[in-house]
Amino acid sequence: MLNDFINAYSLMNLRYLLAGLGITIFVSIISIIGSYIIGAILGIIRYVKIKYLSAVVGFVIDLIRNLPLLLIIFFIYFGLPSIGLKPSSIWATIIAMIVFESAMLAEIVRSGIQAVDWGQMEGARANGLTYTQALWHIILPQAMKKMIPAIVSQFISLIKDTSLATIIVLPDVMHNTQIVYGQNTNYIIPMFLMLAIMYFVVCYALSLVSRYLEKRMA
């Protein structure tokens, strides 16, 4: 048993896992940036109630939010080629993540803006600011502060959920772990332990950052 652990944690295996972790982090960072931008835009569109546009955006967001991420991954990976795009499994995962997570974030942004006291908007308008100015300078900064915990925990979900993309052969840390223990099944237990530790370290570090931000902004 102890021998299995020592052999499983050979430099070669660990390097292979770390390479997978690198892919996980790469995919996560690009997806986080993309979904943060798109999610914020969609959330604001939903909030400001532009005729038709907001309703359509809202409906599409609801559709996406209510489907399993795994299904979105399949749609992107198997579906995009029929409109002429052929993403690799890495880019397919990134696109699927951005589609799914920006819908989730849009909802957080919308309810975050709504949670800001309506009186503030009226006050700002009374002081001569336009609607857009009030939204941009008064409402959004406060809303963003309130949203931080929800947004960060959504990002943590995003990192964890990249593991689902092993099903379309994304060479991430989950996939590489499976390759290692698939070749020598004595390594199953040590490999799972290492996998859990790697995810935990990354996600927990992010949640500590969130706590720090919350404290600083409060």
Partner: peptide
């Protein structure tokens, strides 16, 4: 903290 920071897939496969 442990189970919030580990993917569901990893827990299930475990």
């Amino acid at each position: 903290e442990v189970f919030r920071n580990i993917p569901l897939l990893v827990i299930t496969m475990f």
